[in-house]
Design a protein around this nucleic acid. Structure first.
Length: 342
DNA sequence: CAACCGTGGTA
DNA sequence: TTACCAAGGTT
């Protein structure tokens, strides 16, 4: 099927490509590698709709990789707050500094793969989209589209090897970036997880999954484990129109992010309930929040007028600037609850 | 290699 | 309401 499949897809892409902020305009030269890299990292396990405002914020504030390399890590972390998977933000700064020091982005997949935060997918995507290198760009969209096009029955993640091999047979030498993005556009617009609009698909005549009937059955996936529910407590410690915020350890859950003090809850176990400072605490309600691998019921304990500051590192953060603290969503929810009941 | 790591939209 | 899902990477 070689070139036939690529031709059909690229013709479709010429008519239906999405207009996204990090894409070059049609007919324009290649997109800015900085924009391609930044968008691809933001898009890891994250929807286009969620990424767009962050991409605009980042490129306005840090217009090129040198500007991002010069930014304090704390400011980048705070700007990333709400987008999730915070190790991406830490690696983003590291990679920006390496690239800036080297005088620009590497242009091959193998060199890109050495940068922190770039795995198989992202290195291939940047090589293809920013530098027109032929690469096997395999994300969840591509896995789904290829599993259906070739009717690959082997369940994921075991079937990844077969998917790469099948993709290799239809990946052209030309238009590497367009081909990669066309695959992802097809997956996100027509060949979707729960629904496939086969009548609009450029591959309707050559798709083995459609031929076999019920293409949405593919790809087959291994069953997922149940999520445990954990409980914990966060502490709202307030004094003089300011709240006590801590910085979480660099690794682990919400690593490196500003946060309310808590009682040590984690994916592994419940919190101790022990407050960071003695005094008269009152219950301030509860926040339910789901992470990738567990649910959390986070009780909020409120201390309205603390005299000594709690033990350990932290800072009094003015309530009127709380939006700038860069709190992850869990703690932003807890803070909103505390402020609403004040 | 399987566990770990966020969040918001959707059915 | 719950579970699944999304342009995955690191350990």
């Amino acid at each position: 099927m070689c070139d036939r499949a690529a031709d059909l897809l690229l013709d479709w892409y010429d008519r239906h490509a999405r207009d996204l902020p990090w894409r070059a305009r049609p007919g324009a030269p290649l997109p800015d590698p900085y924009h391609v890299w930044l968008s691809e990292v933001m898009l890891q396990q994250t929807t286009v709709a969620a990424v767009i405002p962050y991409f605009e914020k980042f490129t306005t504030r840090w217009p090129d990789v040198a500007a991002l390399a010069a930014a304090p890590e704390d400011e980048v972390m705070a700007a990333w707050a709400g987008l999730g998977y915070y190790s991406r933000a830490r690696n983003l700064v590291k990679a920006a500094r390496e690239v800036s020091r080297a005088g620009g982005f590497p242009t091959t997949e193998a060199e890109l793969l050495k940068l922190p935060g770039l795995g198989d997918y992202t290195a291939a995507a940047v090589a293809a989209i920013a530098f027109e290198r032929r690469a096997l760009v395999v994300d969840a969209n591509v896995e789904r589209v290829i599993a259906r096009l070739f009717a690959i029955e082997e369940p994921l993640p075991g079937g990844k090897k077969a998917i790469r091999a099948a993709l290799d047979t239809i990946t052209p030498e030309r238009r590497a970036g367009d081909f990669a993005q066309a695959m992802m556009d097809l997956g996100s617009s027509l060949c979707r997880a729960r629904e496939a609009q086969c009548l609009l698909c450029p591959w309707q005549a050559i798709c083995a999954g459609r031929e076999a009937g019920d293409p949405t059955r593919l790809p087959v996936k291994a069953p997922k484990k149940a999520k445990p529910t954990r409980t914990g407590t966060a502490f709202w410690v307030e004094r003089d129109e300011a709240v006590w915020l801590v910085k979480r350890p660099g690794k682990g859950m919400l690593g490196g992010m500003r946060a309310l003090p808590d009682d040590g809850w984690s994916a592994r176990g419940d919190g101790s309930g022990v407050a960071p400072v003695a005094g008269a605490w009152r219950a301030g309600g509860m926040v339910r929040h789901s992470f990738t691998h567990f649910h959390l019921e986070l009780g909020l304990a409120v201390h309205a007028d603390t005299d000594p500051a709690p033990d350990g590192e932290g800072e009094w953060w003015p309530l009127d600037r709380l939006d700038d603290a860069g709190l992850p969503t869990l703690f932003a929810k807890a803070a909103a609850l505390a402020l609403a009941e004040r």
